[in-house]
């Protein structure tokens, strides 16, 4: 685990700062420090819930957008291109603000902060997800479609039983990266008041005036989350590779 060593310079840096650091505010041996730490970590639940829910939606939307992109008909491919180009052009932060402040006005739908965050993250990510699926599906050999056709499978069964199982194995690493990306982007949902890791850090930081320590903890929190996720993805990859042997 090389990545663990990334923590070393970080810890050195924090140690060398000497008197300028005010670690007492998160010293777990004191009641205040312990409470502050608990307050910071309590955002983890929403960060995880937000990114997990969003990635699930974005995978489904991504697949639904990828399929017309593979059509023989130009019209369907046009639908795919338009969606991908449009959604990719909007910055995530802007999309979050628009879904939270704009969508209720134009549609009358009032989402909770959580679901507004999920929707914005999922939409934004779905364009990338669609491209990943398209590439994965295209990498499955043409002979697989022909074999499926020659045993009379329809489009749905061909996709479901023959093409997608093979495509998903191939795009799993990319999906894992996308999940890591989603965890990072979920921090932006703090701007509309989602009580996730970043928001908690912001709130504590304004009340105790120790931004350096608090944001350092925040960095470490994301680092730990993402290291766990990447380890999980690599484990899955290895398992898949072993199954391919």
């Amino acid at each position: 685990m090389n990545r663990i060593f990334l923590l070393v310079p970080l810890l050195l840096l924090t140690g060398c700062g000497g008197a300028n650091w005010g670690w007492y505010i998160i010293d777990p041996t004191t009641t205040t420090g312990w409470n502050n730490l608990k307050f910071l970590a309590s955002g983890a639940y929403w960060t995880i819930a937000l990114s997990l829910t969003a990635i699930c939606f974005s995978v489904v939307i991504g697949l639904l957008i990828a399929l017309p992109g593979l059509s023989k008909h130009r019209g369907w491919r046009g639908v795919n291109r338009t969606y991908v180009e449009l959604v990719r052009a909007v910055p995530i932060l802007v999309l979050i603000l628009w879904v939270w402040y704009g969508l209720p006005v134009v549609s009358g739908i009032n989402l909770t902060i959580f679901w507004a965050g999920v929707l914005a993250l999922a939409l934004s990510d779905s364009a990338f997800q669609a491209e990943i699926f398209r590439a994965g599906i295209q990498s499955v050999a043409r002979g697989q479609y022909e074999a499926a056709q020659s045993i009379s499978l329809n489009y749905r069964d061909t996709m479901r039983y023959v093409i997608l199982p093979q495509a998903i194995r191939r795009i799993l690493p990319a999906l894992g990266n996308q999940f890591v990306y989603m965890i990072k982007m979920s921090s932006l949902v703090s701007v509309i008041g989602m009580q996730e890791l970043t928001r908690k850090a912001n709130e504590l930081s304004v009340s105790v005036y120790r931004p350096l320590e608090i944001y350092t903890i925040l960095v470490v929190e994301y680092l730990i989350l993402i290291l766990i996720v990447s380890a999980g993805v690599r484990w899955l990859e290895r398992k898949m590779q072993a199954a391919e042997q």
Partner: peptide, 24 residues
């Protein structure tokens, strides 16, 4: 086919039963 085009992620039995189950 020349290249067999078996479904690599399915067992031999699953390769054989897929068509009869889903299409027939």
């Amino acid at each position: 086919f020349q290249q067999f085009n078996l479904f690599p992620h399915l067992t031999v039995l699953e390769n054989l039963t897929l068509g009869p189950r889903r299409a027939l």
